[in-house]
Structures are given as structure tokens and as C-alpha cells.
Design a protein around this nucleic acid. Sequence first.
DNA 1: ATAATATTTAGACATTTGTCTAATTATACA
DNA 2: TGTATAATTAGACAAATGTCTAAATATTAT
Lengths: 94, 94
Amino acid sequence: MNALFKALDDPTRRQILELLREKDRTAGDIADAFTISKPSISHHLDLLRQANLVISIKEGQFVRYSLNTTVFDELIGWVMNLSDKKNTKRKNKK
Amino acid sequence: MNALFKALDDPTRRQILELLREKDRTAGDIADAFTISKPSISHHLDLLRQANLVISIKEGQFVRYSLNTTVFDELIGWVMNLSDKKNTKRKNKK
DNA sequence: ATAATATTTAGACATTTGTCTAATTATACA
DNA sequence: TGTATAATTAGACAAATGTCTAAATATTAT
């Protein structure tokens, strides 16, 4: 959970996720979408991978990155749990 | 959005949110739940307030903090938008 | 083999972050 | 009015973070 929030706490990394929403991309393609250096992007991708937000597959001399949407379920669960509960007096309790 | 993810990227702050899920609390009550100093907690509360995750109301010499659940809608929207889209070949497109 | 391309690793550096203690502000009470 | 209590602000400091360049690794093509 810690790694997840950490990974999301950066505009570049969130932009990478949005890029990958459209389609899978190689590390180089991703880097081309930004002005920062390739090693920096590589580092961001590493953090995203640690958080399980992306999956990387080596294909020849390229590495293809893709979104791993399963983690979002966990995140949504966490948020929902927090946004619920508070109003214990609500009418539609079930 | 930046402030939101930044606020969530800290275990103490997330714990504060979970505390407030149960019920509103004063700054002092919140601080008592942790081993770190009051000024540090005050700083965390400030970041949570900046992110609109909590609301603070001064009541006499106390300050009462409460969850602001409206922000979670935005967060869930962001996550959902990201977790959708990717599988453009899905059957239930509507 | 050698060179070119794709990506990551290593190491340095400035900025940001979380924490602390001391001081300040604001309210309540005697 | 003075003192106790609640909370924040100020300022310092170590640790974490994002970025860079240079070097290393891996694959492809000549």
C-alpha cells in the first residue's frame, strides 16, 4: 500500500500511467513523451513496477510496459472504505 | 490532484484519515494516537487540509477535524478512468 | 567481431519531506 | 489579570526523492 501511494505521488509517473492507458509502450517510447532523461524515466518505471502498477516484458532489445489494472481494485477498496463509515446515521444502511 | 496524492503518500496521514473515519476529533486527540510530536501532527493535518481531505473547525480553544469525503469521488473517478479504457476489446462496452 | 541501438545501473547533487524543540497565538478559568 | 491548556508557527536538521551524466549490459545488424 505504501509503495502504491508513493508511486502515485508524482506527476510524471501519473502521466506515464495515462500514457499506458491508451496502449502498451516501450521504455524508449515512454521516455520520448517527456523532456527528462531516459535514466530518470527508467527510475520512474521502476517505482511503478514496485507498486505493481505496471508490468514489464522484455522483447528482444526492447522492454514493453503495460498497465496492471488489478492494483486499482485495491486502491478503490481503500478509498471506498474510507469514504463510507463516517456517516453512521445514514438512512440506506442496507 | 497533486496535493491529494501528496497528502496520501504518508502512513501517518493515512492513519489520521482512518481515525477520522470513526468520528471527528480534536488536534490533541489525534496527536495522542501517535508517538510523534504535536507540531508534527499539526503539520500533517495542514497537508491533509490543503488536499481538502479534512475540514477543521475551531471550537473554543480546540480545533475539531473531520473527514471531507467529497474529495474521494474525484480520486475514485481518476482511478476508474485509468483502470478502464485499457481493454478496448472488452465485450460489455454498453 | 564490431558497431549501433535500447535500457538499466551507479553515483553525485540539489530539493523536498518528516521530524524535532522552542517560541507564539488564542482561549478558558481562577 | 495572570496562569493553564490547545494548537500552530518558526527554524533546524537528517533522510528521502527526483534529476542528471557517465558507464554498464543486452540485443540486433553489418
